[in-house]
């Protein structure tokens, strides 16, 4: 084979490789030229017949031709492979705009949401989250909180009594007592939970609702500390600075007792329908723990004191989400619950 015919073979084969439209055509071209019995192999065998001084040049020519063709083959093969893959994948088209199958995520009850938020907040401040029974004894619900049977403060809370003399707790305050008995001082605790009052139900009254009781007992707890703590807490709850004020309020388990008001978050003070034009919204009762309550729970009031507060979780949830009818909360209606 002459050098020219080699060059011709290369040119022709390159053309064939480039023109191959399928992997089969390409493979046929490769076998014919680059295969073990292909044209280049045959030419290689003929090299022995050449005079020794011409062999080196011819060999170089053959190697060059082989490399060129192999590169061309590889390039074409890659291109054909890619085409095949992309055609296959294209055939696998899916409509990803269709809704994903399977149930949608469910919804937590709005009170659970608020309660969890507060539990996390208080835990971050070092408060234990405690639970107590919903059915309570008269002692824990009243007597241990400085409300003996003959005390008119019992009328402040309409009570559900149970056969056998126990009652449904009218507030989460009994958990204060249980917490003091169980953990002793110093103590930081909250007790969120369900409470009951014997009231008829309407859009703003429920016989079943949720409270969060809080208490801190330490060596020297003052009204100034209570104020600081409430401001910090309420800023975290409302996600903004709040202005608070304390005014006298009577609760037998605290002395002094306060009603805590916050400056109306709607109007900021000048007065609006939400705050009944007063600029303030009554938010929670609180106070310094009455020494009698500490004493009854086995804590020496000469050594320890503290503050306590009660937050209406139901009311807070209604404020947060703008719920205008309290009955929705225990109504079980998914059209309401799925909004949370």
């Amino acid at each position: 084979m002459s050098e020219d015919s080699i060059r011709e073979l290369v040119a022709g084969s390159l053309e064939r490789i480039r023109a191959a439209r399928t992997l089969e055509e390409l493979e046929a071209a490769r076998v014919e030229v680059l295969g073990r019995k292909g044209a280049l192999a045959i030419a290689g065998k003929e090299m022995g017949k050449l005079p020794p001084d011409a062999r080196a040049a011819f060999g170089k020519l053959l190697n060059g031709a082989k490399q060129t063709l192999e590169q061309s083959y590889e390039a074409r093969k890659r291109s054909l492979d890619e085409g095949a893959l992309s055609r296959r994948l294209d055939g696998e088209w899916l409509d990803l705009t269709l809704p994903a199958p399977g149930p949608r995520r469910g919804h937590l009850h709005p009170i659970t949401r608020i309660q969890r938020e507060l539990e996390e907040l208080f835990r971050s401040l070092g408060f234990a989250v405690l639970d107590g029974p919903e059915v309570e004894t008269e002692y824990y619900n009243f007597d241990a909180l400085n409300i003996p049977a003959t005390h008119p403060a019992r009328d402040m809370q309409d009570t559900f009594w149970l056969e056998g003399g126990n009652l449904l707790r009218t507030h989460t305050s009994p958990v204060q007592v249980r917490g003091m008995e169980r953990l002793g001082p110093p103590l930081r605790m909250i007790a969120p939970g369900r409470v009951f009052r014997n009231e008829s139900v309407d859009a703003s009254h429920e016989h079943t609702f949720y409270q969060l009781e809080g208490m801190m007992i330490d060596r020297d707890v003052s009204v100034a500390h209570l104020l600081y703590f409430m401001k910090t807490l309420l800023a975290a709850i409302f996600h903004r600075e709040v202005t608070v004020r304390l005014r006298p309020g009577y609760f037998p388990f605290v002395e002094p007792g306060f009603e805590l008001d916050i400056q109306c978050l709607i109007c900021g003070g000048p007065g609006c329908p939400v705050c009944k034009q007063s600029g303030w919204v009554e938010l929670l009762p609180c106070g310094l723990v009455n020494p009698n309550v500490l004493r009854m729970s086995g804590i020496d009031p000469g050594e320890w004191n503290g503050f306590a507060f009660g937050l209406g979780l139901t009311r807070l949830a209604m404020m947060r989400y703008g719920i205008d009818d309290i009955r929705h909360l225990q109504g079980g209606d998914l059209r309401f619950l799925e909004q949370f």
């Binding site: 399977g102 995520r105 469910g106 919804h107 369900r194 079980g332 799925e338």
Partner: peptide
Amino acid sequence: LVDLGFTEVYNYS
């Protein structure tokens, strides 16, 4: 349960 698509209800005691 919420992840599995269930929605929480509260009922009276």
